[in-house]
């Protein structure tokens, strides 16, 4: 049978449909989720009814908190946050109630809730519509943080999130929605905490997340025979497959981290710390980070592009390291 190509957003839509069909406890709510032009939730209301697919008022604190409560009651809410930036108005519900209720209750309650959020820059949308912010959420104990970089992972990781017992922040880069990939029709899961070895290499390890995985591969391809680049996509940053990163580092001795989130105290800093603490003896050169500098993302395309990690910046970082 021919392999089927669908887009990242179609893969996410399919994950919703399969889980809603097989489990009546799966419910979806958020802003405009019943709208026909919202790619990921399109058609869900028509198929599963307006009771289970609900448009919420623009009140993130209320509807995210409602998701926490519904999850505690045993439903499997998939709550959509239109942009991760908007989650900042609901930080108590996300970082206190969603993340910590299971631990604080001594395990008496569980919060099997998936909070989906689009993220990312590159569309000239400026500082409150372009951020990544996953490091901020990964900082708080109790949240799992998932960042699929391709359609196959998007579907499998979302099904894993919905079926799991824990609160998940599920991050979707909006520029990935049209990306096509081979995706099986049936339901399947991609486990958390298991990195994907995207490209094998022996000279430099590049750890990249989300949209940056593709940019890292492009950079590696451009360098071609000059440098053998290994690209690792952690897929989930909580839990993080540290061993996959250290294993690669043992082979290459060089590490570049490509992260669209802000550099300071971010995911790139975390991976650099792991390399320093647990992989120091394998390092032949300083760790290099290609992350968004500590500057709010500006509107004008020229300014925005100047700040964001890019293929060119990754090529430059790898080249520097090889010559070290």
């Amino acid at each position: 049978m021919a392999e089927r190509l669908i887009t990242y957003s179609e893969a996410l839509n399919e994950a919703h449909r399969l889980e809603m069909a097989s489990n009546p406890d799966v419910v979806v709510f958020g802003e405009n989720v019943s709208s026909g032009w919202r790619q990921v939730t399109k058609g869900l209301k028509e198929e599963f009814g307006r009771e289970r697919v609900r448009d919420a008022p623009i009140t993130e604190t209320a509807f995210i908190g409602m998701g926490v409560g519904a999850a505690i009651m045993g439903l499997k809410p998939v709550v959509e946050l239109m942009l991760v930036d908007f989650g900042l108005v609901a930080m108590d519900q996300i970082l206190n109630q969603m993340a910590k209720s299971h631990y604080m209750s001594g395990g008496a309650v569980k919060v099997p809730m998936t909070l989906r959020a689009t993220y990312g820059a590159g569309t000239s949308s400026a500082a409150t519509h372009s951020e990544s912010l996953y490091s901020l959420f990964a900082h708080m104990p109790g949240l799992k943080v998932v960042i699929p970089s391709n359609p196959y992972d998007a579907k499998g990781l979302l099904i894993e999130s919905i079926r799991g017992d824990d609160p998940v922040l599920f991050m979707e880069h909006r520029l990935l929605y049209p990306m096509e990939g081979v995706v099986p029709e049936e339901a399947y899961t991609v486990p958390f905490g298991m990195a994907n070895l995207v490209r094998e290499g022996s000279d430099v390890t590049v750890v990249a997340t989300g949209l940056m995985v593709g940019k890292a591969v492009e950079a590696a391809d451009e360098l071609g025979p000059k440098c053998s680049v290994e690209v690792i996509d952690p897929r989930t940053i909580v839990p993080l497959d540290e061993e996959a990163i250290l294993r690669s580092l043992r082979k290459t001795g060089r590490l570049v981290i490509v992260d669209e989130d802000y550099e300071r105290c971010g995911f790139s800093a975390e991976v650099a710390a792991i390399a320093a603490e647990k992989g120091f003896q394998h390092l032949d050169a300083p760790v290099v980070r290609v992350a968004t500098p500590n500057v709010p993302i500006p509107y004008s395309p020229v300014l925005e592009k100047h700040l964001l990690p890019s293929k060119e910046k990754i090529v430059k970082a790898i080249s520097q390291l090889v010559g070290y």
């Binding site: 604190t61 209320a62 509807f63 995210i64 908190g65 409602m66 998701g67 926490v68 409560g69 519904a70 999850a71 505690i72 009651m73 045993g74 439903l75 809410p77 108590d92 519900q93 206190n96 109630q97």
Partner: peptide
């Protein structure tokens, strides 16, 4: 709940269920 007002949105989830 240790956050003043923090439990209220969650109660909407109990009611929704």
């Amino acid at each position: 709940n240790g956050i003043v007002g923090g439990s209220v949105p969650m109660v909407a989830g109990y009611a929704l269920t």
